[in-house]
């Protein structure tokens, strides 16, 4: 049995965890705004958020590469601040993955917010609660399943991404060489034993996480209608 590619696995898990955490922080307000805003041009923002769902990863990766390259303002600003470019670095990978996985966080959370009975939110207001208090005491607790789904999907999606990583990060061991790229490399080099072991690990890991999540989100507070 060939040994697992721990360097690639560790890198992928770290990338997925960081992206997932950042997306939770920025994706939740976006989901809230998309759900409750009455702005007439809202659909434009919705479309932009959903773009990564339909664009080929190579297209998205290509544009990100252009945007963070040393000739773009973003790339130059980053270089001036840190001393090195964004392309083919872990930070560049994080940025690209944030864009790529954004809809996987925003959409389930937004859908969960939209399912919260509006009269509960209004009841909270008539009971003197501020919007922030209503959000944390009513909207979020009743959207837990959607939030967990968003976390799991964006984590899994980042873990398994391939095209964007290849375009933006390249294939630098320990820096941008993620699990999916490592597996691809092994196959290209006819190292089937390594590929098998790493792929199996990813498969089992993903299954265990999903099984855990689904077992924990079995409608913790179902309301009996008109009992």
């Amino acid at each position: 049995m060939a040994s697992l590619d721990w360097s690639a696995i560790g890198l992928s898990l770290r990338l997925a965890a960081i992206v997932c955490t950042v997306l939770l922080v920025i994706g939740t307000p976006i989901a809230y705004w998309l759900t409750f805003s009455k702005w007439r041009w809202k659909f434009l923002v919705e479309s932009v958020v959903a773009l990564p769902l339909v664009l080929p990863p190579t297209v998205l990766g290509f544009y990100v590469l252009l945007a963070i390259g040393s000739r773009s303002p973003v790339g130059r600003a980053w270089e001036g601040w840190t001393g090195h470019g964004l392309a083919f670095t872990f930070e560049g990978l994080v940025l690209a993955s944030l864009l790529y996985s954004l809809p996987f966080m925003v959409q389930p959370i937004g859908a969960a917010f939209a399912r919260v009975d509006r009269s509960l939110i209004e009841a909270s207001a008539t009971l003197g609660a501020s919007r922030v208090r209503t959000f944390f005491r009513v909207t979020v607790p009743l959207s837990v399943e959607g939030i967990i789904t968003g976390i799991v999907l964006s984590f899994a999606h980042t873990l398994g991404e391939f095209g964007v990583v290849l375009m933006v990060g390249g294939n630098l061991p320990g820096t941008t060489r993620t699990v999916s790229i490592a597996i691809y490399d092994h196959v290209q080099a006819f190292q089937y034993d390594e590929a098998k072991a790493t792929a199996l690990f990813l498969l089992l890991f993903s299954f265990v996480i999903l099984a855990l999540v689904y077992s924990l989100t079995r409608k913790p507070w179902a309301v009996v209608p008109n009992a």
Partner: peptide
């Protein structure tokens, strides 16, 4: 005080 038609008790 407002009592909604479907009561709007917080289910959780």
């Amino acid at each position: 005080g407002y009592v909604f038609q479907h009561l709007a008790l917080f289910p959780h």
